[in-house]
Design a protein around this nucleic acid. Structure first.
Lengths: 190, 190
DNA sequence: TTAGTTACTTACTTATAAGTCAGTCGTGTC
DNA sequence: GACACGACTGACTTATAAGTAAGTAACTAA
């Protein structure tokens, strides 16, 4: 028997990878169970329905983001560092196998997600946008970034470009993501 | 009985709508057949396998784009008009029901697409990027647009931002797409 | 030492998707 | 007026996904 809660984490890891590669409808309980050498029903033991799995997935994802940005959101700090951290977070998660970050995948699968998973997806989008807006706002005040328009409109633009680039990269090559990140950074005067 | 080729077009219309709303794995032959009051098997008559349907869908989509840009690609022309046309094309296709344009959906579903459909998706991405690059290149030469960096890197950025915005708009509201379009236009000095 | 709990497995059920195939029905053709 | 053809329908098959129920092995606490 595995250590306490061990299997649950392994299931979430595997499911997250599959979700980012293939989308919510693109993997089954069997696809999760097989590489872990457990049975389909073991996954149902930890996550009775697929919606439970989806919610847990996005909750964990939000938690990672929240931990990484908590201090900045509360006390402010170096906006450049925050943004570069996010660039790395995205690049790392997408580099091998053309994965798409959970936010982008949740967005494109939005209409086929069960309602509780949609709620998580919306929360993730809201939190990410709120954080990005604050980064750009503080960054401009600190004269680290330079841009026209409201911080909010700019945040939407930057986040959209990152999400879109991850996806285009699947078809037009990994260079697309790197080129976009460089261009965004350069546009902001980083 | 329907007029010649009529049903085929209706199937493609319905499938395209479903694809843009729910993704490749998110709809079935039954979902296409039901609103047209035909049977599942009638869809198979026109498109034996789902891959045939996917290929036909993207081929038609590419054709629409090609027709709309053919003259510009050959002889040049007003870059502002081309770009504004694309903004409208995207906004119209996405406004109701949170659809995502076929390029973006193909990207996020890429790894679950049958190989022939992947080829179509790659071709669509390449063509769209080539067109966007030419628009931005000519537009700068004509002094309609102003931007830093290569036309190619900028094209990737603009296209990525549009694709990403469509998707974020599903979760964060339609305003996101409009804000992004305005911001892109403003950044280019339009 | 036994009763309970956790983390599973075995062996199903049910639903739905993709796909097949023989047959039907109207339409123009010779 | 028989015949062929295009565009379907009806009635399947097969595969796979989600989900369930009953049973079991190992540890845990009274």
């Amino acid at each position: 028997m595995a250590a306490v809660r061990e299997t649950r984490s392994l299931i979430l890891n595997t499911a997250e990878k599959l979700f980012q590669e293939r989308g919510y409808n693109g993997f089954s309980y069997h696809d999760i169970a097989a590489p872990l050498n457990i049975k389909n029903a073991a996954v149902h033991y930890h996550f009775p329905g697929k919606a439970d799995l989806g919610v847990a997935l996005l909750e964990r994802y939000r938690e990672i983001l929240r931990v990484a940005t908590k201090d900045f959101m509360r006390n402010g700090g170096d906006a450049t560092l925050q943004l570069q951290g996010y660039f790395q977070f995205i690049a790392r998660r997408c580099e091998k196998g053309g994965k798409i970050c959970a936010l982008g995948m949740a967005a494109s699968d939005f209409h086929i997600l069960p309602e509780p998973v949609q709620q998580q997806a919306r929360a993730l989008a809201d939190e990410t946008l709120a954080w990005m807006t604050r980064v750009l706002k503080l960054g401009r005040e600190q004269r680290h970034f330079f841009y026209d328009g409201s911080a909010n409109a700019r945040a939407v633009c930057v986040l959209a470009a990152l999400q879109g680039a991850e996806q285009l990269a699947r078809m037009a090559g990994q260079g697309v993501l790197e080129a976009t990140i460089r261009q965004i950074a350069s546009d902001l005067g980083m």
